[in-house]
Simulated assay, not measured.
Amino acid sequence: MSEAKLQRQARAVAALWRLLAGRRLGTLWCLARLAGPLVHRFSRREREVTEINLAEVFPERDAAERRRLARASLTHSTATMLELGFAWMAPPERVEASILAVHGRELLDEARASGQGVIVLAPHFGNWEVLNFWLSGHFPFTAMYEPPKISDLDPVIRGGRERMGASLVPTNPRGVAALLKALKRAEAVGILPDQEPDWGSGVFAPFYGRLAYTATLLPKLVARTQARVVTGVALRVPGRGFAIHFLPADARVHDPDEAIAAAGVNASVEAAIALEPAQYQWEYKRYRKVIEEQQGHPDHGSFRLY
């Protein structure tokens, strides 16, 4: 794609975000409810991966119930995309007013009062951009950031994520060093724990009873800093706003064995998902690396679609 075409595309996307930023959350949720079933019907990749994952993690549910959950999940994922402009560009007082409750804040306060850094384990659940907004407005907060493929959108996204004071660092060794420094200053950092890492950057650990290749960045940071780990999500209250929940992380995240710690990370993600499974972004291929390991074996089961 030519540079001029990419620039036009970036301007159109940014204009759409600005337009959506001015809409009420109730309007955005209505749009998501209209578009979500279309995403489920016509976006084959998202539908198949979501349904495959749900079949693996909820085998006790019947097929009709899982299909309903898949449609609901894709509706919530659509809502998150529609809410990006709101989280990044709406007046801060509007975004703050949309946060209807904050549960478990004492977990963060206790960790900071003890002089320890805090790692907020933030799965792709609800609206994680609203969680970033709240965290960066209340604590010194650092998070990793990978620039978008359309480079002209970088200042828009970066500006939205940094506007409340967040410090964004690159997804490379320099960024990891910045996270370590922030934790040693007893500050908060955010880690997205459910994206599949590159080979060599993770271990296999159970996720809903099935092995998934899981990043070891969080266990490494804990080992180096003795930071406290808290799970954080911004659960959507459809059409009204968000309820932020901070939950104790599984105790295993502090284990010196990275495989055990990674199992604790995944268990912490599961505990967050339990708040409302439809709000988790099931479109991630969490089990892909296992399949790559199993190539040539006959027991891939339903994951052949991956």
Rank of each mutant, 00 (worst) to 15 (best):
L84N: 05
I119E: 04
D152S: 12
V120L: 02
T216D: 01
E292H: 04
G296M: 07
R304P: 03
A113G: 10
V39Y: 14
A205W: 03
A251D: 05
F133N: 04
R286W: 10
V120T: 02
Y145D: 07
G22W: 09
L108V: 12
I191Y: 08
A35N: 06
N53H: 14
I291Y: 06
G202Y: 03
G117F: 09
L82Q: 12
E83F: 08
F303W: 14
R24A: 15
P248V: 05
R71L: 13
S114C: 10
K220Y: 01
P170M: 12
R8V: 14
R210H: 12
L84Q: 11
A166K: 03
Q116L: 13
I191L: 09
E293P: 05
S2Q: 13
A21D: 09
G232R: 00
A259M: 01
P238F: 04
P193M: 12
M81G: 11
L247S: 01
L6A: 15
P197Q: 08
V203P: 00
A32W: 08
S136R: 00
A271W: 03
A234M: 10
G117Q: 07
E60A: 15
F133L: 06
R45Y: 14
R158D: 05
G301R: 08
F42G: 13
A87I: 06
I119G: 03
S201L: 08
A14K: 11
V253D: 01
L192M: 12
A263Y: 00
S73P: 08
R67T: 15
A274Y: 08
R288C: 05
H245W: 07
A278L: 07
A234E: 09
E60Y: 12
L28R: 04
S268W: 01
V265M: 04
S302F: 04
L6V: 11
L221D: 04
E65Y: 10
R45Q: 14
L247I: 04
A249P: 02
H254E: 02
P155R: 11
G117S: 11
E3C: 10
